[in-house]
């Protein structure tokens, strides 16, 4: 482990810090060059979470907040694999999930969008990858919602994710989008990603993962930063 060096963020696919079309980057993006840090124990380690910390329904957002009935909207099942850039699957890593409900409304107190809350849907969950790096969770397809960035600005349907990976260089917070969404080409948060990276944020409809008479399937793989280990090296 001590000889491993993790790759830096790949500028070909990662968004810049300042992207003026996404207006709140203007006052919040660092302006001075980042200082390159030699990776040490701190960068090559990170928190580890265990299965036992998760609630039994954390992976099922259609059931984890039921009060008096089923949440409204289209049930979906999202699955995939977490890899690193070397193509190695990442087992036992935590994935945190949050999203709007089917009407495009977040439970968050700051969200004032005039669309109904769903008493049976919180929109938060989490799961872990298994020994092969695979994950799966159930939810309701989130709705689009308006935001104040510019006139008639609407966010495409999306699910927020937070991943930890092997260490703090692997930390990833991102959003997954849905295929064919016409709002993508108007969304400055999505368009902040360089063209080469954009398709990597769009899930694929997956008929094989679709559950008969229950939920539509989508596949979304994550790729965390890799390292200089050769494919033959045992880690």
């Amino acid at each position: 482990m001590s000889n491993l060096i993790y790759n830096l963020f790949d500028e070909e696919v990662q968004p810049p810090r300042l992207y003026p079309d996404y207006k709140s980057t203007v006052l919040r993006a660092p302006t001075k060059p980042l200082v390159l840090l030699k990776q040490s124990l701190s960068e090559l380690s990170g928190p580890v979470f265990g299965d036992f910390e998760l609630g039994t329904l954390d992976h099922d957002l259609t059931r984890n907040s039921i009060v008096n009935g089923e949440p409204l909207g289209e049930r979906i099942v999202v699955h995939g694999t977490v890899f690193n850039e070397n193509g190695q699957p990442i087992p036992n890593t935590l994935i945190e999930i949050w999203q709007a409900n089917s009407c495009g409304r977040y439970v968050h107190k700051v969200d004032q969008h005039d669309a109904p809350l769903d008493p049976n849907f919180l929109g938060a969950g989490r799961c872990m990858t298994d020994a092969n790096g695979n994950y799966k969770f159930y939810t309701i397809k989130p709705g689009a919602y308006p935001w104040g960035n510019h006139y008639n600005a609407w966010r495409p349907n999306h699910i927020h994710f937070s991943l930890f990976g092997a260490n703090i260089t692997n930390r990833l917070v991102t959003q997954m989008y849905f295929p064919g969404d016409p709002l993508l080409q108007h969304d400055p948060i999505f368009l902040g990603v360089p063209p080469k990276g954009r398709d990597l944020l769009i899930s694929k409809f997956d008929l094989d993962a679709t559950e008969e008479s229950f939920a539509l399937g989508y596949r979304f793989d994550f790729v965390l930063r890799g390292n200089n280990a050769t494919p033959f090296e045992k880690i």
């Binding site: 696919v13 990662q14 890899f83 193509g87 969200d111 929109g123 991102t174 959003q175």
Partner: peptide, 16 residues
């Protein structure tokens, strides 16, 4: 493989 691009945590992360 190419890295998954980062996206903002947004304003509504708190309940997750």
């Amino acid at each position: 493989m190419k890295q998954t691009p980062s996206q903002t945590v947004g304003p509504y992360f708190a309940y997750g």
